[in-house]
Simulated assay, not measured.
Amino acid sequence: MSEQKVAVVTGGSAGIGETTCRALANDGWKVVVAARRLDMCQQIADEIGGVAVRLDVGDRGSVEKLAELERVDLLVNNAGGAKELDYLRDAQDEDWQWMFETNVMGTMRVTRALYPQLKAAKGLVVNIGSVAGTDAYKGGSGYNAAKHGLRGVTRAFRREEAENGIRVCEIDPGRVKTDFSLNRFKGDEARAREVYEGKHNLTAEDVAEAVRWVASLPAHVNIDTMSIMPVDQAER
């Protein structure tokens, strides 16, 4: 690739990931749009002059393929999600395993795989966390645990790599109106719609603008954490 700076965005085919890809491209980045749905990644990449890559963060082979990129200046670990709103007494092993695999293990795999490129570039890693990683709510124990885990990973990695010039940031959105709840409730549109009705909600663009801004700062500036919530989400 050329001297143009390269950004990799996981979960880049929709929602916060897609809008982040577009915001970064508008700021002059060469964006690698990475997600499981290659056709959607390709459509976005074609529109923004980027590169489409099929990526499943739960598949080590898929992640290792991503590591063939020659240059990475920015990694946005956006792939993640939640499953259901079960109380701990009703927890499903497979839902918890998926949340940890996607939110925690996936972030670890991708960051580890791209570490040589990030170190060479003295790059930036932005992990998309959640206010669920700093607080807890009924029915959220699995997602809370996963996002608290991601927060621990982020803070440790920040300390580990400060001397190498790698910047590490966690952006923690509150209620964002995307397909997040639809995916959480496994396609139940009524339950998903109820989460957002009658409320002021963040948009995916709001979060993407935060990523774009963090990525635009000079190399000596590190935004450790940023919480972004709609005005009516002062408490749960």
Rank of each mutant, 00 (worst) to 15 (best):
V53G: 05
L217H: 00
A67S: 03
G58E: 15
S141P: 00
E161P: 00
D90H: 06
V57R: 09
V104M: 12
V33D: 10
D73R: 05
Y143M: 02
T19K: 15
S216E: 02
Y143R: 02
R236A: 10
L69H: 05
L38E: 11
Q233D: 12
T102A: 15
P116S: 09
S181N: 12
I16G: 01
A120Y: 02
A215D: 02
Q117C: 05
K83V: 08
G149C: 06
G17C: 09
V76W: 10
C41Q: 06
V221A: 14
V32Q: 05
D135Y: 12
T10G: 00
V76F: 05
C41V: 09
V168Q: 05
L182N: 01
R37M: 01
G187W: 11
A79D: 03
G174T: 06
A82T: 10
A146K: 07
G81L: 01
L55T: 11
D135C: 08
I44Y: 07
D179R: 14
A136W: 08
S62Q: 11
A132V: 06
N127M: 12
V131Q: 05
T225P: 02
A14N: 10
Q43K: 15
P116K: 04
T102L: 14
D232K: 10
Q43H: 11
V153E: 07
D73F: 10
R212F: 07
D56R: 05
H148T: 00
G61R: 02
